[in-house]
Design a protein around this nucleic acid. Structure first.
Lengths: 117, 117
DNA sequence: TTCAAGTGCAATCAATTAGTTGCATGATAG
DNA sequence: CTATCATGCAACTAATTGATTGCACTTGAA
């Protein structure tokens, strides 16, 4: 589970974490774990762990400012994951199209009279 | 973890499962758990569980043919997840662009002499 | 300087998960 | 009909995970 893709998908598989990620996305200047914990139903420590996991996946970055640590979103990892998915989805669709065409051609050669004029 | 998005990301967060998904993508006619288990380092039962999880996430479908069950890929869920990610990534990038423009404008109004002519 | 606020660390716990093994069921080729 | 092959089901184990709690450390403000 330690490769790049895995950690990103794993990070996004938890609703609490997705929620945090979306909160970060709404806040260009970032949010601290303590702030985020106020709006959440779980403890600050739980939030911290989630944020660190998001950061580890490349979905967030932590920036220290005095005694506060501001987490802000980062979208490179998200973009990569999105591409990973869509590349495969479209490869599949292409493959299906080829297959379908093959079936159609076979049909046409079997019953040439039914061919589109 | 039971919502649509969660199960898709969770399904894709496991390397073994991603490997299986990719094998299904290469095989338009589908593969049985037994076939897939031959190329894998884990037991057939493990493969079955992975395939069922993929199916549950909408990344695969199981089609029974006599005593065999063929699993084939399905890309709707992948496409949805991909969109989920890219929508958020681009919203963030837009937000950053606006922010940046704000900073630029402020700079210009402060030092009007440096304004582009 | 003192003290409160924000964070970091570690131990612990319950639930989930990836994997195994053993055996039962069901379909098909001889 | 009867082996046999593919699948299904159940119990079990070890590792991981989401969450909690208590306490120590660091920083900033009064």
């Amino acid at each position: 589970m330690s490769d790049d893709v895995s950690v990103v998908f794993a990070a996004l598989s938890d609703p609490t974490r997705r929620r945090l990620f979306e909160q970060l996305l709404e806040q260009p200047h970032g949010r601290t774990a303590t702030e985020l914990a106020d709006n959440a139903s779980v403890s600050r420590q739980a939030i911290v762990k989630h944020l660190q996991l998001l950061a580890n996946a490349g979905l967030a970055v932590a920036v220290r400012d005095g005694r506060e640590v501001h987490y802000r979103a980062s979208t490179d990892a998200a973009q990569h994951a999105s591409v990973w998915l869509s590349v495969r989805a479209s490869a599949w669709d292409r493959r299906l199209a080829v297959l379908e065409k093959g079936v159609r051609d076979a049909q046409n050669s079997k019953t040439p009279t039914s061919r589109r004029r």
